[in-house]
Amino acid sequence: MPGEELELIRSSLLDFLTRELSGREQEFEKIGIPRDFVEKLAQQGFLAAAIPTELGGSGLDRPAYFTILMNIARFSGSAALRVMLLNGVIYRVLKKMGKEEIVRDIISGASSISIDTSLFTKFWAAGKEKFFVDPQAPMSIFMLDGQIVLARVSLKGSREFRPLGFRGLKFGDPQFEVSERVAAIKDSGKFVDSLMAEISGDIAAVAIGMSEAALEKAMEYSRVRKAFGVTLSSFQPLAFPLSIMSVQLKTLREFLLSDSGRSAADMIGIRELAADFAVVSSKQALQTHGGYGYIEDFGVEKFYRDSLALNSLFGEKIHSMTLLAKEYYGEEAGNL
């Protein structure tokens, strides 16, 4: 997509987010992402950004889709993850099952699908509760006997969790009966490996967007907040890391957005770098704010929580690192 078109998408998205989300970030975190916001996202073409137009999506290319994820994540990691789960996970699973038509109902809001996060987990702890996103949904993508199953479900109950991050989404351990088994992926291990590689750029985009917002807040605060008679920006322990992180951020963003010809290895690599960077940069932003950074109303600590959750939600680190090593070595590597 030409630069001007990308800039047009970015500016219209920012207008939309400023109008519909800015100032409501805490509300999103506390009560969940409002349905009307998701509907408006869909109407504007941002919700199903990367889904083909014939299925009701916007059919945008990766740089445009990543730009959307990044900018939504600057305001709300939860809202960005909602978009990413639809485009990156749900659509890809449905497509693999040959059931991509169902995505129309999800985009229109007529239906919804819960996702079992153990789908990404190679090593599941014995006896642990399941950890689903949107546990109340009438359809579900879940793991059963080593297969990824799509089913219509009848909900019997659900224990809700207050998660570390992305609190605007709902997480829980649903108890349901399968009322209709729609489809399944038998060789789930191989599919999950390819899915992990495919959504790496999506995860990186969310991480970069959160890092941008956290660093901006820290820079802004350090310019106005005074201690010992001078602004915080005068102190090397704050100004130096924030400055070098701004360069790191720019590098990550430019690498991701110019990705059209990049390999799977590059994308997995940038996921790891961006996700780690989100933790480091948001932690620095929190520290810069001192005690105020520790209070939810200041809107800084959520970036730290969200970035840590982002690192854990999509499988163990060793899983993506093993995929990365395999890509670079061209054979199994780092598997001990």
């Binding site: 153990s118 642990k128 509760e129 570390l164 840590l308 854990s312």
Partner: peptide, 26 residues
Amino acid sequence: LEITGTDGLNSQLERFLRDAKILEIW
């Protein structure tokens, strides 16, 4: 949290993490 993944997220570790950060501040 990093080495426990989703299992850690859905455990007491998430609270340990939230609690820990204040120690670098107060």
